[in-house]
Design a protein around this nucleic acid. Structure first.
Lengths: 205, 205
DNA sequence: ACCTGAACACCGTTCAAGT
DNA sequence: ACCTGAACACCGTTCAAGT
């Protein structure tokens, strides 16, 4: 009941949430511990009671990002249980939407901004869970003849590199306007998928 | 002849060079105007005589990176004039080598770290020159049946996204060690190329 | 034209001290 | 256990002043 002086029980999560908000409103370059602390209503040194340093806060935010996409991808696979082609397309589009809607959270989550990622085990765990999801999707696609046979982790890696590369370039404004005039981001993504699959993927919905 | 007090004629390029050195030795997070100025032997405010702000220095360094790869790619195309498959492989590997040898210069050059890239016309010009090189390569590969017919800029874009995505993930330590134990970075790259081409690319030299 | 030094508002991080 | 405030070494940027 003593809620006047920010003993609000869960400063740690409040700081993570504040970080996500700063990313959304001001971008990754404006993400600072001091700003996050101020937004959570505590002094600039309070975060150090919950995070070893700025890298640890970034790791926690990245873990949040991975959790978000994990839930989204899991839902998709349940939604089209007998249609791996549709799962592939919708999964890729979920990543694309994440990248375009929340570019800076996407960067923190996937762009490898951490110096020593292995020092953050819960983040590593989430990245592996998401990679496993991708591998399972690849296996289902192989069974349907969408991907050729071969090591599923290798194909999943290549799928992710392709999707991630396109999203990063779209985010950074590195895609020529001549292309953007003719194709939507979604179409560019579908073209990429099409070029790496055995079966043609329709360009339109 | 008055070379005692750093009127050394070309502070601008000295600052760019100092920036490249800082990237190589301490990484992108340690790149600061003040450090670059100190390394060039001038006061912390001297850079402002040559660059509007830190973004402008970053843009100049990125331009340098684009020039470096432009020369490398151009040389390769001249080296195997009648072998587009070899040109494709060696071009992709040149990017890969750049990314692995100078990860932080590669990031500055290609990762879209600039807030307003269009404000730096000489950088935009170099990015376009490199993209044109890639398109010409794609056209030669299409003529040889390596890539399917289709818009060459779209295929070039997808090629670049695939190569860039893999390099970024390798840099960030985002490729599973299970994969790295079985495949070299070069093999991962060749596998990616293989999956997007019409003709099989041999995995070994 | 090119450079310096002081100044300002921001950082990350540490540490003694308070409850 | 959780938080504060002062302190330190760094930033980017501006501006008056020097040559």
């Amino acid at each position: 009941m003593k809620n006047n002086t920010y003993h609000h029980g869960d400063l740690k999560n409040a700081l993570i949430q504040a970080g996500v908000e700063v990313l959304a409103s001001e971008g990754v370059n404006a993400l600072s511990l001091r700003k996050v602390a101020k937004r959570a209503g505590v002094s600039h040194s309070a975060p150090y009671a919950h995070f070893a340093d700025k890298q640890a806060l970034i790791a926690a935010i990245a873990t949040e990002g991975h959790l978000y996409i994990f839930d989204a991808i899991t839902a998709i696979s349940g939604q089209y249980p007998e249609d791996p082609m549709r799962q592939l397309i919708e999964t890729a589009c979920a990543y694309l939407r994440f990248g375009l809607d929340e570019p800076d959270l996407f960067k923190i989550t996937f762009a490898g901004m951490l110096e020593h990622e292995r020092d953050h085990p819960s983040l590593v765990e989430m990245t592996q869970k998401n990679f496993i999801l991708l591998r399972q999707l690849v296996v289902r696609c192989q069974a349907a003849g969408i991907f050729a046979t071969g090591p599923d982790d290798l194909i999943a890696q290549n799928l992710w590199a392709t999707v991630y590369g396109l999203i990063s370039l779209l985010q950074g404004g590195q895609v020529s306007s001549a292309l953007l005039d003719r194709f939507s981001p979604r179409q560019l993504l579908l073209f990429s998928l099409n070029q790496m699959t055995q079966i043609d993927i329709p360009f339109e919905e």
